[in-house]
Design a binder for these strands. Structure first.
Lengths: 257, 257
DNA sequence: TGTCATTACTCGACATAACAAGTTCTAGAG
DNA sequence: CTCTAGAACTTGTTATGTCGAGTAATGACA
């Protein structure tokens, strides 16, 4: 006895495949085959509701999944857009180091420790091309890899960008991706500087290491393609985090438990 | 004028931070600090509803996010469990090749082309240690990197595993991860064999290349830690897919648009 | 004693409904 | 003609409710 229900459009209501999956697949196809072009586009949720004859919850689930995949992104009062395939070599080299390796592992996310607005001060101001007294947003995150903290990222961005960023899902999305993809800021080069240091009390607590443990400190300034500085940060990596990489390379074919 | 509402437990109903985010954060902390131990555990949705004083939709949103992060997983009629941090070096070397590099890029997902049950046949049967007539599940997926297809994966698994797998989100989750994490199957070694070949009609269509284009064919048998074969597959990589890697390495600091 | 049906749980999928909070455009006020 | 208030759209968040489908333990029946 199959429940007939409302007979929507072309969806199979009897199949064991949930509606939102069917819709997701249809939309993905349209994106992939170019029916929906990159940047701009996508029907609104209410439009999709009526064309597919389903409720908003179902539409949102489909769209949410596509967003997770990175195929689309949403802007609050505006709409849903097809994200353009990112030129990932930029990002790859800009992130380098730990991020690259951490994205080889799996379970990765960041915990936002704090977000606050503050005067740039001399150091940050000089890098971000701002007055010392100009407000910038400081963003502290601890990045986790396989449930263990591997780095503390302290990021400074101009207030305008920082305020938008503070509303994003910083736990999972890469800031570079948000800047490039959602905000349309083409990233250019990055200047960085690496040194070794010892964990102080604060760092030790955040990274769950002993005080005095070796830490890699990376200072990185990221510029937009037009040369404007957009992101200045300090990354503090656990010294032993890089062991992960070693482990991967070392094993030739054996080494299991 | 702040809306008072129902005064639930310890959540801030006035803050601009959504309820589900607060709950997610609380639960994540409990997992990270060990209040909820790995494998087994986690209160049910209805329990969480009453302890936090929110609706099921909110609880599910929080749990769903944590699941995306890989911290928890759910089993339909049973409950929600804390997933154990995976020993990711196994997986890293088991997947190697394209997967590793594709996880360095971002937008990656697989499209499930087909899932079907069929007799193992001589070749597959021999590898999976099954009778020729024994049923196995064949799973065909096309893996996308930055919206372009890079490989066709044809996977054979024992029927018991295949039937569970067919219900999973194969578009995003790695099969190895599901096997290890959700099903508790510890993976052991893998045997593989690589050769070069030319795309036939079918492959060309799937990978969006010309017929006759060079394709890398990888045959891989994955064994559980106890030596039992669990996954036999053929991976067909676009020959030019590996260019991606080159690009990453080549660029030293320049190369933007 | 062993099988089977009932029941009580859990998560999965949707629907309907409301309000909040962004954005954009337009019409009316100054 | 400029500026502003607001309407009309968008996505975001949340509540309530329903049905379905797995899982597991219980107890009745053969």
């Amino acid at each position: 006895m199959v429940k007939p229900r409302k007979t929507p459009s072309q969806l199979l209501h009897v199949s064991p495949v949930p509606l939102y999956t069917q819709i997701k697949e249809i939309l993905r196809d349209r994106i992939l085959d170019g029916s929906y072009q990159a940047h701009e586009q996508m029907p609104s949720e209410s439009e999709l509701m009526s064309t597919f004859g389903v409720s908003r919850i179902t539409v949102r689930q489909a769209l949410g999944d596509l967003q997770k995949e990175g195929l689309i992104f949403k802007i609050h009062g505006k709409g849903t857009y097809v994200s353009k395939p990112k030129a990932f070599q930029n990002i790859a080299e800009l992130q380098g180091f730990g991020e690259a390796m951490s994205s080889m592992g799996y379970e990765t996310f960041s915990r936002v420790v704090s977000i606050k607005s503050m005067p740039a001060g001399a150091t940050v101001g000089a890098r971000l091309n701002a007055e010392d007294s100009e407000e910038v947003v400081e963003l502290r995150r601890v990045r986790y890899l396989n449930r263990a903290p591997i780095s503390l990222d302290v990021t400074y961005v101009p207030k305008s960008i920082g305020e938008r960023l503070s509303k994003e899902d910083l736990a999972h999305r890469d800031i570079f991706l948000i800047l490039e993809n959602d905000y349309g800021i083409a990233l250019g080069a990055a200047e960085l500087q690496i040194e070794s240091m010892l964990a102080d009390d604060y760092l030790a607590r955040q990274l769950k290491v002993e005080e005095g443990a070796p830490v890699l400190r990376i200072e990185r300034l990221t510029l937009a393609a037009d040369g404007r500085p957009v992101d200045f940060e300090f990354l503090y990596y656990r010294g032993d985090a890089f062991q992960y990489r070693m482990r991967i390379e070392r094993s030739s074919s054996r080494r299991f438990s």
